[in-house]
Design a protein around this nucleic acid. Structure first.
Lengths: 109, 109
DNA sequence: TTAATATATCGTAATATTGCAATATAATAA
DNA sequence: TTATTATATTGCAATATTACGATATATTAA
């Protein structure tokens, strides 16, 4: 098979898996970090910053957008991308809660 | 192709991508959350808790272990798995820094 | 030793991802 | 209108992931 059994897991588990999966490629991490570094939305020049062809980057941007990790607005000929703080906060909260929970536990291996 | 151009990105970017990728499947999120919920290491019963066959779970555990997200110790006939706090802290810190950086920025779309 | 139990590995089919050339689309400029 | 520029989509080959039956391995129990 290979089909991920999405229906066997909770909505929340699928959501966190999808967000993680969207960040599960160095190019997409690089895009995230580039958008973070630039002190505003970026219109256009992502392609010049990464060692990948334009269609490939477009595809990665699409995946980040599908996961709601970035937002894109049409700005004339270019498209203006920026990070979606709300979605990134979901991730931050998730891992923060995990660490908190671990620290409350008495022990481990 | 399909080969991920790992060599074109920084070690750090590859590391965060690998960690994210390892969590990019609902079964592995479910395993993580199960290990978190149980107030100790778990020896054995993960297979009973998930709707997947034993070899499939073994494979997912292997991936989590490869990513250093969990630790496994042999405990007689069973194997004792637990979360690796250090690695999960890497993720927490990463997203915390991202949110912090976003909040410092003047504006966005 | 043999049996029972727990986990891992092998092999393989189904599916998904990645990367890019070629091409399409959409907006502005000339 | 016809360029020009920026981004998206299509199509496809290479590769990776997922799932699991069958089997192997390893530990304890009898």
């Amino acid at each position: 098979m290979g089909a991920t059994k999405t229906d066997h897991f909770s909505t929340h588990q699928n959501q966190m898996a999808n967000l993680s999966k969207a960040l599960g490629h160095p190019a997409r991490i690089a895009i995230l970090e580039y958008l973070l570094q630039v002190n505003s939305c970026i219109c256009g020049d992502i392609v010049d910053k990464l060692p990948l062809a334009q269609p490939t980057i477009s595809q990665h941007l699409k995946e980040l957008k599908n996961a709601d990790l970035i937002k894109g607005t049409v700005e004339g000929t270019a498209i203006c991308y920026c990070l979606n703080e709300k979605t990134l906060e979901l991730l931050q909260n998730y891992f923060a809660t995990i660490i908190e929970t671990i620290k409350q536990k008495n022990s481990c291996c």
